[in-house]
Write a protein that binds this DNA or RNA. Structure first.
Length: 518
DNA sequence: GAGTTTGAAACT
DNA sequence: CAGTTTCAAACTC
């Protein structure tokens, strides 16, 4: 008897139950999102009258106008779409497509998922959960002291009434609606975002599981971050891990192993069909990753926190443009697309930027190398004709030709012969060019007498070098500017600490330009 | 299933 | 804001 229509409908569709905190809003959202509900004028009229309609997208628990009304609007109005979500006679319940309503709900309303609906990391889903992550079963809390009116209670935290739980002295039900509303009010006073999703950047509208998980991993992060100390953020105690997202700079965890490229994390997940992890691993250049790690750029949350802390002192209250973040975090970044930092006020907890995009990652180094190679190639092509002319010039003896080839070679970066002997990174080669230039210049000086043709060639060669250097250094400068914008090296802010008499970026840039131009 | 560990929430 | 307590889920045995 205690289980009323409300409970029945909830059993039919756990989502309905989960959302019955904000039933009218949820019903409207479901109607729009799933397109399963015909635009019932009556329903719309009532929904439009909801004083909390504007909270629809904020996942705030509604303030039911009355128990009876709530029953009718909230629960029973959901029965129609609920039925449409039921598995057909021929469908397996575990494979039945569910409406994407969960996306509107609480990706991590309460992070700790009860045993009744186990969620294994990275898409290892159990029978208790459908493919799209929608719980197939209602949560069953075991609260004893909280009366299920605090966020300790998963049901309460997720915006659900308790239903079939093992809780004691439960007041998270219709019979105690007033107390419940008081609790909601109090909770919201403490934290206005208490009932909002904790995972920012959760993917929306992605139906493919692999893509879904991948997107969540890449884009998602815990809004408040975790504070784990002993779990290494690799147990479900950790809200980030449980929500299938990497720890972020929002976290204050210790000994975190829940970051991109974490070997422990990979080991833990080894053997499972965690496509997203595989995808990420495959798209990460291991060598570059090691290089970056040993350079102090390891993208651990700790390092991010250090960077964030350091950077926040230098550039307070900055966050990344989210659109730029996503582009960069998806690896589709242009080295020159320096993100637009924008000042943000009114964000008491956000002191600096918002995502991984501000940290130095292997792909950024890769981008740099790619850039340098591309630049070098460009320069090489530009002057290849000149080299050919030298080679064919009968007025030059072979010795001179060879010397010119060496001296004139814009491809101190690209000299394939030397590259075979001693492979060097483009950056190293680019830096070596300058030394070689000095050496060859000395050589020329010691040679003493030169023909006018040689002098002309030497002048041209110098111009070539200058032009080449200018391009490479200019590109390198751009990267360094971007680098400094991203944070710091080994916790030391570049802008503030590398040079006591530091210059503003514009000055640095100008200085670079001047020096590169001689 | 009981006991322990863990970390978020609540409190001071 | 930091430290402590409370709480319930996760975990271990």
């Amino acid at each position: 008897m205690e289980k009323s229509d409300h409970d029945l409908s909830s059993h039919q569709n756990p989502l309905a139950h989960q959302l019955d905190f904000s039933v009218p809003a949820a019903a409207a959202a479901a109607a729009v999102e799933t397109k399963m509900i015909d635009s019932s004028q009556e329903t719309e009229k009532k929904l439009s009258q909801s004083p909390l309609e504007d909270q629809r997208d904020e996942d705030l628990p509604s303030q039911p106008s009355g128990t009876e009304e709530q029953h009718r609007l909230g629960v029973k109005s959901l029965e129609e779409p609920v039925r449409s979500w039921q598995p057909s006679a021929t469908e397996d319940a575990t494979t039945t497509q569910k409406p994407p309503m969960h996306r509107l709900g609480h990706p991590l309303g309460k992070c700790r998922v009860s045993k009744q609906e186990p969620l294994t990391p990275l898409g290892q889903r159990t029978e208790a959960e459908s493919k799209d992550g929608t719980p197939n079963k209602q949560k069953h809390c075991n609260c004893k002291a909280s009366r299920c009116l605090k966020l300790y209670c998963e049901c309460f935290a997720s915006g659900s009434y308790c239903n079939g739980c093992n809780c004691v002295n439960c007041q998270n039900n219709l019979e105690n609606e007033s107390a419940r509303q008081e609790a909601i009010t109090g909770t919201l006073e403490r934290n206005p975002d208490a009932f909002k999703p904790k995972i920012a950047g959760s993917p929306h509208g992605i139906n493919d599981l692999q893509e879904d998980v991948r997107q969540l991993l890449i884009l998602g992060k815990h809004s408040k971050g975790c504070h784990c100390k002993k779990s290494g953020c690799l147990k479900k105690y950790c809200e980030c891990y449980q929500a299938n997202v990497f720890c972020s700079e929002n976290c204050r965890c210790q000994d975190c192993k829940n970051f991109e490229g974490s070997e422990e994390r990979s080991a833990l997940l080894h053997g499972s069909h965690h496509v997203s992890e595989t995808y990420i691993q495959q798209t990460t250049n291991a060598a570059l990753s090691r290089a970056v790690s040993t350079s102090g750029f390891l993208n651990t949350p700790e390092s991010r926190k250090r960077k964030s802390k350091d950077a926040s002192s230098a550039v307070p209250h900055l966050v990344q443009n989210q659109a730029v973040n996503r582009v960069i975090r998806n690896g589709d970044t242009s080295l020159f697309s320096i993100p637009n930092n924008k000042a943000v006020s009114g964000s008491p907890t956000c002191t600096y930027r918002s995502s991984l995009s501000n940290t130095i990652q292997p792909r950024h180094v890769k981008d740099l190398c790619t850039l340098l190679v591309a630049t070098s190639l460009d320069v090489a092509n530009k002057y290849s004709d000149k080299r050919r002319k030298h080679e064919k010039d009968p007025s030059l003896d072979p010795a001179q030709r060879d010397a010119n080839e060496i001296n004139d070679s814009p491809d101190c970066v690209l000299d394939s012969t030397r590259m075979d002997e001693k492979p060097l990174s483009p950056a190293t080669r680019a830096l070596m060019c300058d030394d070689e230039h000095v050496i060859t210049s000395e050589k020329e000086t010691s040679a003493g007498v030169k023909t006018s043709q040689e002098k002309e060639d030497a002048d041209t060669s110098s111009e070539i070098y200058l032009e080449k250097e200018r391009q490479i250094l200019s590109s390198f400068r751009d990267f360094l500017i971007q680098l400094s914008n991203r944070g710091s090296i080994k916790g030391t802010n570049i802008k503030t600490n590398t040079n006591p008499s530091r210059k503003e970026p514009q000055d640095e840039e100008q200085s670079h330009r001047d020096s590169s131009l001689g």
